[in-house]
Write a protein that binds this DNA or RNA. Structure first.
Lengths: 158, 158
DNA sequence: CACGAAATGTTAAGATGTTCAGCATTGTGA
DNA sequence: TCACAATGCTGAACATCTTAACATTTCGTG
């Protein structure tokens, strides 16, 4: 009776919901160790690839620089990481995992993997593979073509 | 040389990145109207299904109740919605779109649909359909089985 | 060397997410 | 009717997101 928009798919909504469903498996684990989602992402990153600049952490962990600043300060205060300026280019900040950070990461990792296995069992290995493939492609979407958007846009930007 | 974990897929990461890639298409549009992502989700919801209780808004828009409280206050202050208590059960809060809210929603909707079409064109209609199917299934993951998680867990619950 | 542009982080301000606690209202059973 | 649990929303505290503006350092070029 209302034949609304042809296919109002709500892709962002579904991506959000799906992420929530998945994170529900990991969140209790991380909470138990007093870690946030973002902190865990950073720790795994540094454990996998070694120390790196803040900018690279931001890119790989999907965290915007202003957020990262505070997160790294708190993580250093918690003894999880070290922060130091690059000697040759003092604009850059080098981030590395501390000894305790590494220990904790390697303690949590197997439990995290176990959570992942549960998800895989429920969802199916093949479908999971398929989904990851599609997501990877979707991530490569070209940036949108700078649409004016609102009613009142500027006359000439420069 | 390091043959780490067998398949460290990072599903949550991919869901996050994919969502970012998609939202990049919608964000400028909403920003142009001074709306946040969450506000827009709520407006579309109310436009589609009419007034409803706050709890239902929270569920359908994937917003936790404590966040929703503030969001609704700001939206009412901005003249986008109305808030009123249910007469028969004064615990419940009924939320409805205001006249201006409805007008704005219907003004933005076609532009939002246009963004969506762009994404569909880039990504492919078939793959999009397939992805949405998988996401919908993933959303139905059973809640995790209450894992003890951390080092210090409780002895016996119940 | 001087100057301006680019690169890299950080601050600031407002909005939202997340968890836990509280408050009011309602439903239920003795 | 009264105690008591359940429901629905709000408050508080902290962490993060988002955008814009700033500070510092480095680079490119004259």
């Amino acid at each position: 009776m209302d034949m609304q928009r042809p296919h109002q798919h709500r892709l962002p909504q579904h991506l959000l919901r799906a992420r929530e469903a998945v994170m529900a498996y990991f969140r209790p684990l991380l909470n138990g160790y007093g870690l946030t989602e973002q902190q865990w992402r950073i720790m795994r990153l540094l454990d996998d690839r070694g120390e790196m600049e803040a900018g690279m952490v931001a890119d790989l962990a999907c965290i915007l620089p202003p957020s990262l600043t505070g997160i790294l300060v708190r993580m250093e205060k918690a003894g999880l990481i070290h922060r130091r300026k690059d000697k040759s280019d003092s604009r850059r900040l080098i981030v590395s995992l501390s000894a305790e950070g590494r220990t904790l990461t390697q303690q949590i990792s197997p439990q995290s993997a176990a959570c992942y296995e549960q998800i895989e069992q429920h969802f199916g290995e093949d479908k999971l593979e398929q989904l990851l493939q599609l997501l990877t492609e979707l991530e490569q979407l070209p940036a949108p073509a700078a649409q004016p958007a609102a009613a009142e846009e500027e006359a000439a930007a420069d």
